[in-house]
């Protein structure tokens, strides 16, 4: 299910990115659109890779590692 959905998202994004490159305007629109699409595709591929080979890993673990400490500080020392 996840692979299908992400695959659909990537295809949709790439298709729409191509449309944006073709019809978009503004300085460097095309180049940045391509970079943006590639970044999204990379995110989607990494989602599929993690779901397939590391199903138990926490995908938001990096955010927790970055911000749980700050949150605990906001709570004035509380953490579960």
């Amino acid at each position: 299910m996840i692979g299908l959905a992400v695959g659909a998202a990537v295809l949709g994004v790439l298709f729409q990115g191509w449309q944006a490159v073709r019809y978009g305007d503004g300085p460097g629109a095309g180049a940045w659109t391509v970079w943006g699409m590639l970044a999204l595709a990379a995110v989607a591929v990494s989602v599929v890779v993690q779901a397939r080979w590391w199903p138990d890993a926490n995908p938001l673990g990096w955010l927790a590692a970055l911000f749980d400490g700050i949150t605990s500080w906001i709570y004035l020392g509380w953490s579960a």
């Binding site: 959905a5 998202a9 949709g12 990115g17 503004g26 940045w32 943006g36």
Partner: peptide
């Protein structure tokens, strides 16, 4: 981010991405 005039091109693809991430994350 992409320097385009119209924002609508990203709506449906990102909806699909968010849909799948809601269950992945």
């Amino acid at each position: 981010l992409c320097g385009t005039r119209d924002p609508r091109w990203s709506i449906w693809p990102t909806a699909l991405l968010v849909w799948s991430l809601a269950y992945f994350l």
